[in-house]
Structure formats: C-alpha cells, structure tokens
C-alpha cells in the first residue's frame, strides 16, 4: 500500500515539479517521497522507477502519437542510425527511471539508517 501511494506521489509531484523546474527535479521528488514514507530499500527503488515510468512513458507516447513519430524517428536515427522510435522512447524512459529509482533508494537508506 505504502509503495503504491509512493508511486502515485512520485509521479504526481514530479510532473508538477517538472512544469516549473528542470528535468533533475525528479531526483529530489523521488528522494523526498521515499524518505517521508520510510520505504524499504527494494520497494523504494521499485517505487522510484515505477513513479517516473508512469509519468514519463505515457507523456512520451501521447506526444509521439500526436506527432506521428516524426520527431522520435529522427532522434532515433540520430542516436542509433535507425528510425526505431520505440527504442528511443525506451532509452528516454530508462534514463528517468534509473534516476528515479536510485534517488528513492538512497532516500530510503538514509532515512532508515537512523
């Protein structure tokens, strides 16, 4: 339950934060949620990954479909020399999820270390 709440909170708060702040604002959000809700290590990492995933991935997919993959295909050619837009979405998502997961995990470790 606490994990589910954390996921929702991370997704919600980071989407607000990113509206005003740069991309790295997902880090203090994930860290802070894990700290406040005293998540356990594994659960914290999962919550961080999932929280950013449910914020970032639908956001990208929504924009990508409205754009008919024009931008994502070009970016995929830029990065991988092939117009694989799904791969590009996956790479973007993994960057955010990794930062979200690590932040939440370190938040939980530091809080529970008391």
């Amino acid at each position: 339950m606490r994990t589910t709440i954390s996921i929702i909170l991370i997704a919600f708060l980071s989407s607000i934060a990113e509206f005003f702040l740069p991309w790295w604002s997902i880090m203090p959000v994930a860290f802070g949620v894990a700290w406040t809700l005293r998540l356990r290590g594994g659960a914290a990492f999962f919550a961080g990954v999932a929280g950013i995933a449910i914020f970032w991935i639908p956001n990208m997919i929504f924009k990508d479909f409205a754009n008919e993959h024009i931008l994502s295909s070009r970016m995929a050619v830029l990065f991988f020399k092939a117009p694989n837009y799904a791969l590009f979405i996956a790479v973007c998502a993994s960057v955010g999820c990794l930062i979200g997961g690590l932040s939440a995990w370190s938040g939980s470790l530091l809080r529970r270390g008391d």
């Binding site: 740069p22 991309w23 924009k63 409205a66 931008l71 955010g96």
Partner: peptide
Amino acid sequence: LDPVNGCWANAEN
C-alpha cells in the same frame, strides 16, 4: 531526453 522540457516538447502535434 526529458519528455517535458527536452526534445519531446518539439514533437509538434
């Protein structure tokens, strides 16, 4: 790569 402020903001509907 950020979906909000990064290149995704240039994906014009």
